[in-house]
Amino acid sequence: MTASIPPLSRRARSVSAEVAAHLEGLIISGELRAGDRLPPERELAANMNISRSSLRQAMFELESKKLIERRQGRGSTVADTPYTAAELAGSLAETEIELGHASELRDLVEPRIAHLAALRAVESNLLSLENVLGRCHDGNSADESLRLDIEFHALLAHAAQNPLLVTLCTMTTEWTRRTRTLSHRTKRGRRVSLDGHRQIYEAVARHDGASAAVAMEQHLREVRELSLHTGRR
């Protein structure tokens, strides 16, 4: 079955980058899943009202990020998790990890992800991150705020262009879900989380790896303190 692609919201950016960001966001959010077949390029370009050359550039970028697979005569499909990453996830998932240990792992992994994302992010990555931040506001529910939080960190990991780091980010997200839930219970917590994301994004957009890592470290400290405070209530 061929996947349905939602309309593209156009901005004054490179068309191919906008398309890549749009499709990447659908993949990261789970709207497009591993194995989903994308419409034929001619049809997809017509539906999105873009040229086939712009679409091809976007598809090439997604393929280079290992988000889709393109095969002659079979079209394009959303890629599975790379075997090496899946193997790592499987071996670690069987081990019972305490929340404190998982938080320590997050402190080790996520600043490095932010640093690499700042060095390696391309225009489509920045557009995807902007899109998530644009959907964050004071009216978000706790559940929606948590979902956008997870999506932001997942997109940041993809911007680092390393599939193993994407897998580590996914695993630490699951291990720290309870902590994240606590930090999003209050409006203040959701605001602090969003402010942290904005500071991280600004550093990534400047391609300032050191500042991105520092912003992430500060963000994780604030989230941890919020979670501890909320958990004691």
Score class of each variant (00 low, 15 high):
R42G: 01
A45F: 08
A45Q: 09
A45Y: 07
A46C: 04
N47F: 09
N47E: 15
N47D: 14
M48G: 01
M48Q: 13
M48N: 03
N49E: 14
I50Y: 04
S53Y: 11
S54G: 01
L55D: 08
Q57A: 05
A58W: 10
A58P: 15
M59H: 06
M59G: 03
F60D: 14
E61Y: 07
L62G: 00
L62K: 00
E63W: 14
E63S: 14
S64G: 06
K65G: 04
K66P: 00
L67S: 02
Q72L: 12
Q72M: 07
Q72R: 08
G73R: 05
G73W: 12
R74Q: 13
R74C: 10
G75T: 04
G75M: 02
S76C: 09
T77F: 12
T77P: 11
V78C: 08
T81I: 10
T81F: 12
T81D: 10
P82G: 00
A85M: 08
A86T: 15
E87Y: 05
L88P: 00
G90A: 03
G90C: 03
S91L: 11
S91F: 10
S91M: 11
L92K: 00
L92W: 05
L92A: 09
L92D: 02
E94G: 03
E94S: 10
E96A: 11
E96F: 09
E96T: 12
E96G: 06
L99S: 04
L99N: 00
G100N: 06
G100T: 07
H101S: 08
A102Y: 08
S103V: 12
S103I: 12
S103F: 15
E104K: 01
R106A: 11
R106I: 03
D107C: 07
V109E: 06
V109M: 08
R112N: 08
R112T: 10
I113Y: 05
A114T: 06
A114Q: 04
H115M: 15
H115D: 14
A118M: 11
L119D: 13
L119P: 15
L119S: 14
R120K: 13
R120L: 12
V122S: 11
S124L: 08
S124Y: 09
N125W: 07
L126F: 04
L126V: 02
S128P: 03
S128E: 07
S128H: 03
L129E: 01
E130V: 02
N131H: 15
N131C: 08
R135M: 15
R135Q: 14
